[in-house]
Design a binder for these strands. Structure first.
Lengths: 249, 249
DNA sequence: TAGTGGTCTAGACCACTTC
DNA sequence: AAGTGGTCTAGACCACTAG
């Protein structure tokens, strides 16, 4: 039973074929290890050119459903169910995505000397001034996370309260320096709330928190910003889910 | 100054062009908001067909460096530095990737009646039998995580100690049921170690732990497996890093 | 109306695998 | 030698955007 490609539809042929093949895989008609017909054969079968078939197979390959082996063929993959991808967007976008109303309140802004630790991270002297700020991030007016950020102090730019309150850290760093950061490194870990975290987040001290450490680098590898997000564990979890192919309705 | 595409090289032309354009973006020669030459113009400039140029632009678009706007052009994106992608592979692969030697020890295997909670998750009656097992996962012989997993009990298959010790949960579920799971959902959160966790992981009770909850579903949405990973927070963190394009040396 | 990206086609050559 | 996927080409039509 070969479905037909609908040439008049808004959904383009390569996507229709991807859906057809995905259905065959998810329904078990095609099992892991099975080989797909060759690209040329699929083209004949569905009356598509080979390049169009390839575009479709690339989609399935990206999603991990099939894998192509040069000289041999294209094979159905064993689904990788023991792998997870946890994505965290910028806070406002993330909360919107979850259907919550994001908010932010500046807790502290300070121009101060760098501590030993921060001086090393930002590669400045402890004599140098750095800019520290912390924000309380909320969702539906309930505290979700405390953000603590450090960056080199650029004397040329004034500090605008409003920007500090609403902009993402990378945007702020970009705004206050001429070199813009181009690389980012984040590190996720579990931790316990310290006294300061606990007070602002309105949780008992030593409550579990999710920490995300953020470093921003320029093209030549210099660290221009560093800091933390401290999330309430009871209010913030991250989901990894593999969705089936969806077309526009 | 226009670099040339080297036609004899092992690196294919579309990839060479991607590297050229990425360099221009990372070096600041092309700034966020700037438009790229049209696909046709790039083709003329580097003596490539439009399809080849498109393949290159697709790579850059996937990496978030540029975004194409139908009817307008292709534009350099503002780097998304406030987004993080945390990936966790299956435990053995994950530890290998980190240069550690993975190990596993079965702590408990039990065929038992489903608790209220587990019965609801697996959609079985509390009269029904379920299979529970827990494993201690180690790296360089040091305890990293405790895994607790629940699945429907299939009377037809014997339980092999060896498989339980080394296989990933999804593989075990596949092995013990005729319907294979095709969808997976994972949930990450911070938590505190309970007494049992603490003893096996050799940490004080109420130490911080990273929890990953795993659910496995069949094509028709039935939950066939559920469970937890409980990671020591001091031994297990996750990094999100955006790497520049690399060719084979 | 001209230019843009999105899609599609019917060829082609190559390196690789299998027989 | 025949078949496979990886790459490339030189066209084409479309919907969309902009002046």
């Amino acid at each position: 039973m070969t479905e037909r490609i609908n040439r008049g539809a808004f959904v383009p042929p390569y996507f229709q074929l991807a859906q057809i093949l995905e259905n065959k895989i998810l329904s078990g008609e095609l099992k892991p290890g099975d080989s797909l017909p060759s690209e040329a054969d699929l083209g004949k079968q569905y009356d598509l050119s080979r390049m169009t078939v390839r575009k479709c197979l690339n989609i399935l390959a990206e999603r991990g459903l099939v894998s192509a082996q040069p000289g041999r063929g294209t094979f159905i993959s064993r689904p990788v169910l023991d792998k997870a991808v946890f994505t965290v967007e910028e806070f406002q976008r993330e909360m919107n995505r979850r259907g919550l109303t994001p908010g932010a309140r500046t807790v502290d802004v300070r121009v101060t000397n760098a501590s030993q630790e921060i001086a090393q991270i930002l590669d400045v002297s402890t004599e140098d001034k750095i800019l520290y700020f912390s924000r309380l991030l909320t969702a539906n007016n309930s505290p979700i996370a405390l953000e603590r950020k450090y960056m080199r102090y650029n004397i040329g730019h004034p500090i605008l309260e409003n920007e500090l309150q609403y902009m993402a850290f990378a945007e702020i760093v970009t705004l206050y320096h001429d070199v813009l950061p181009v690389r980012s490194r984040m590190l996720l870990r579990a931790d316990l709330a310290n006294e300061d975290d606990a007070r602002h987040l309105q949780i008992p001290q030593h409550s579990p928190v999710l920490c995300i450490e953020q470093s921003l680098y320029t093209g030549d590898g210099k660290t221009v910003g560093w800091g933390l997000f401290v999330y309430r564990a009871d209010k913030f979890t991250i989901v990894s889910e593999i969705e089936p192919l969806k077309g526009v309705e």
